[in-house]
Structures are given as C-alpha cells and as structure tokens.
Design a binder for these strands. Sequence first.
DNA 1: GTCTATATCCAGATAGAC
DNA 2: GTCTATCTGGATATAGAC
Lengths: 201, 201
Amino acid sequence: MPRNPEQNEQMKEERRAAILDNALRLFAAKGLAATRIAEIAKAAGMSQGLLYHYYRSKEEVFTALIGNAFTIMNGAAAALEALPISAAEKIRRAVNELFTGLERSEHTGTYHLLIAAASASEGIPAEARAIITRESRVPYEIMARIVKEGQVQGTVRSGDPEQLALLFWTTIKGLAIHRAANRRTFRLPDPDIILRMFLKE
Amino acid sequence: MPRNPEQNEQMKEERRAAILDNALRLFAAKGLAATRIAEIAKAAGMSQGLLYHYYRSKEEVFTALIGNAFTIMNGAAAALEALPISAAEKIRRAVNELFTGLERSEHTGTYHLLIAAASASEGIPAEARAIITRESRVPYEIMARIVKEGQVQGTVRSGDPEQLALLFWTTIKGLAIHRAANRRTFRLPDPDIILRMFLKE
DNA sequence: GTCTATATCCAGATAGAC
DNA sequence: GTCTATCTGGATATAGAC
C-alpha cells in the first residue's frame, strides 16, 4: 500500500523526533563521547544504518540538539520577558517553571543539563560550540534586563544586574547538575529560598 | 649511576603526580570518555607504555583523581568547620577561598569542576561512582551544620539548613561550570552578592 | 623503568540487498 | 526506507627490547 507524500513526510519527522528525543536523554546522561550511536539507534527503535539515513554523524545529531535546546530555552526566556506582568512576578514565574521542568525531568530540564555539560566541555563539534557561544548570552541578557526593571520598580534587590543575572542562571545550572547526580534523593529547595536572593522581602 | 631506593621512590611519586596533574586538567576539560590516554601520557612527558606501568587503565587514573578530589575538598571543609571563628565568618571564608580557587584555576577549582561533571554523568567507573555516592554528602552536611550554628548565633538567615547548604554548593558548582565554559570573559560576581543569600544584613 | 612496536578490540560509518 | 553485513580507523592495552 503506497504512502502519499504527506504520510512519508510525517513518518520522516517522527523518525527524526525519535532520534532526537533519545539522543537528548543519552547525551545529557553520559556526554557526547561516551554515548554510542548504536545505543541511540536502538533506543529510537531503528537500525544503526537507518539513523545514518537521517543524520550524517553522531556530531550532527548532537549539534541539532544544541540548536533545539537554545531555540526552546531562549524562546521561553523571550516569552517571559514579554509578559505584561511585573518584573518580580517574572522572576517568580521563571523559578517556578524551571523548577517544574527540573523536578519532572521534562525536556526543558534535560536541555538545561545538556547545555551545562556541553558548554563546559571541550571537544564538542565546532558548530555546536559556535551555537553555544552565540546563544548562551541571551538568557543572561534577558534576566539582567528583568532585574534592572525590578530594581526600578523597587521590588528587586540592589546590585549589578548582570552579576545578579549570572547568579540566577548559575544557580539553576547547579541545581540541574545536582539533580542529575542525585535522581533518587533529590528534593528541590523551597523556591522562596531562591527568590529571596533576588527579591526584596 | 645507580639510584638508591629513596630516589627511586621519589621518582615514582613524581611520575604519578605528573600523570594525575595532567589527567585532572584533561578529564575536567573533556570528560573521561573523550580524553585519550595517549594525550595524558604526552602531557605528562612519558610514553603511553610507561603510563601503564603506573596505572592499569584509564579508569584507574580517573578513579584515583576522584578519590583525591574528595580528600582535598572534604578535608578543607572539615578544617573550615573546626576553625575557632563564628559561623558567619566560616561562610565568608568558604566563599572567598572557593572563589579564589575558581578564579585562579587552582587544583581545588578544577577538582570542583571534575566532580560536578563526573557526578552528573553515567558511565563512569563503578568504583568512582561509589566514592562519589559515599563522599559527596560530606560538604553538604558540614555546611548544613555551619548554617544551623549561624542561625543559633543569629547571623545566618532563617530557612531549612539543609536546603540552604544545598543552595550554597549548587551555586558554587554552577559557577565552576560557568567559568569552565567562559574562561575568557568570566568575571566572578561580587562575593557579597552570594554572602547576602545566607547572612543577615 | 622506559621505550617502540603491535595485537586486539570496538565504534563510527558505509555498502548493498530487499 | 529499512535492514544486515562489513569496512575502516583509531584507541586501549600488551609484549618485548633495552
């Protein structure tokens, strides 16, 4: 039974999604070098040969994931900034949403881990490195603007906005790393403890 | 010219130290899987064959480093706790010393990065994993006790001591990761910004 | 103790049948 | 599009000379 072009296209997309979903999990857990392409293919339910029909190399899969990670993370940050709510409320939402993502191991949380591990590591593909260099500032810049706005509104603590933004994201990264290392016993801290780092009481 | 046993022993130790020093740098930068044993040997100024005279495998070098990392980190934490100074002062010193180590890329800073990356990663040797599981709580427990002490003394913010300790270390980890990813442009935040997360103003 | 040379293995990538 | 089988390179670890 012949498939029409739309069905073909859809199947192709599903295959690609299966590869990326499983590769995300594996790369985040073990890193690029330790993840075997055979594992990705098996987890995605296809032969190794077929994976190479969709991606030319392991590095290409990795680079695609890094691109996706920033599309999602930076898109979420931009959407947050655009919301018609106060700066303090934006920071509250950011913490809550990031915590939810981490807690439930949603894609977003896994992306944060992937980025944290990848950005610290040499020996990732040059193209992936370029994406990281280009895109990784965005969340910092957005958070710095939100902090500045909040300081004007009188709801956010004083201090260099860029340093506060750096501290915000490194804390999130640290939690993502810690959670990965302690999946079983991990309990997120009370969001308020983090919030009062940034908000006036 | 024959060497006496003491000289032999000393040379052996120097060789081991050369291997470990260079392996630390490389493992922290690229991870276990991506680091080539040939690289380590070359960086340590010896042939690949000779490295195997000192360590049976790459994993054994890695595991030795993980052990050293905790010996140093946990030793420093215990020494800090034992100092005859106030809890608030202990926290100040901890931040300052950790920042100095990170800033200057001293061994201690590199160890923190190694541990952060290794503990989040599956596929590290079972023995290394066991050391991490056993030892990694120590700094958290020590910091939790210091926080509790400071709360009694009235100098540390209220809040669950264990959560505050978790936040302390994840923030340090996050900074270590961030620094590794941004060696060029990295500027540590003002220590006071971190300190006021924990200390009453 | 130290080196060079090499055996062995394993993973990434390709070829070709269906 | 999908599979199985295979080529090929490179990395770990070993052997053996000095």
